[in-house]
Amino acid sequence: MVSALYGAFESGLIYAIMALGVYLSFRVLDFPDLTVDGSFVTGGAVTAIMIINGGDPFLATITGAIVGFLAGCVTGLLHTMGNINPLLSGILMMTALYSVNLRIMGQPNIPLLNQSTIFTEVRAWWQNLRMDEWLMKPFSALGIEGFAPRTFLVIISMILIVVMIKLITDWLLKTEAGLALRATGDNPRMVKSLSANTKMYIVFGLGISNGLVALSGALIAQFNGFSDVNLGIGMIIVGLASVIIGESLFGKKSIARATLAVILGAIVYRMIIALALRLDFVDASDMKLITAIIVILALVSPAWINKFKENRKRYSNRRKLMQHEKGAN
């Protein structure tokens, strides 16, 4: 149970990078980009093939992200230059990427066991620091060693990476170009009249979004120890679930708040899935169904709750009025 939750926390941190990418396309650019299902795998595929050919894992990860960036740009070009509807350009790219990913990998699945990945590289350095011993102390002092993870390596390193990416995203969205990018999603007509090339911003915005998604895919492949061509199916819904859960639980008042909410949303989502999978009647294959139900609930429940509150208010107002009339008679 405890190790399952730590696992969920670790992978949640990695998936948070993907969720940030989805936040950029869905919320900031207002572009429902389905490329994610393909570009997530592309990141993993490029990284895996470079690693098994003896490439440096850091370089492989960055290359994976860059290829994802290019895939996102292509989706943007399909939409802006080809005038294809946003949803359709994403679906086209997602379909095309499936074949591209198979070509990159040469086989549907590449195992990365016994290969040097980012995590194995950092582990050596980590053990020298003896950080685990330090971090373990409070747990042993309280006599709850069973509640501690096996290692803090993934958690600490991923928190560092995710926080860094969050800060860069926040900063980017506050720059002059970032303001124009946000306005492109908010009011494209106005941005054009303020001399900003909306087409360029859409292409670059989708590029950055898919770059983050591919980076997340590259890290997940190394974390899981394999890259699989089918890993991306439904990924966009996972990203969307993280964004929606995060925003409804943690708010979206400012950019910095919203990006933090999205990261926490990704972690919460993984925790929910981990807990759901522990139920007896739930099978691992039910995960996509559970995800869809979570997203539907997150989308529908705020409206229901509002309606319920309004009805109650109306009812109590009416009752007050009736009592008032009775008193007058």
Binding site: K174, T175, E176, G178, S195
Partner: peptide, 12 residues
């Protein structure tokens, strides 16, 4: 303000 100058990567 970005209308007249090129939009940069400095804070808006």
């Amino acid at each position: 303000l970005g209308r007249s100058n090129k939009r940069s990567l400095f804070r808006g």
